[in-house]
Amino acid sequence: MREVGGIRCDAVLASLSDYVDGDLDVATRERIATHLAGCPECERFGAGFAAMVSALGQDPPPDLSPERVAALAALLRDGAG
């Protein structure tokens, strides 16, 4: 645990989601970027964390089967009648 770039490792850990989501003010964002550039442990973990978050969003949802949509449509029409 050390201070690099004016911010400690545990504070970087606490802010990682806000960092990868782009939810930080510019000054905090720059402090964390400086920390990551000078702290290999946090840099490695941060890169893995960001890769994990990004990988989660890479698969588009499978379409509903036409049979399922047709069954639902029939149900709605019956119910709406």
Partner: peptide, 27 residues
């Protein structure tokens, strides 16, 4: 958060979170 981070591999020796994340079935 510290305990959660440690369990997630933060601060540990070389981790391969990047590679693991690319394995869809594992994720």
């Amino acid at each position: 958060l510290l305990a959660l981070g440690l369990a997630a591999g933060w601060g540990a020796s070389p981790e391969r979170l990047v590679e693991r994340s690319q394995q869809r079935a594992l994720l």
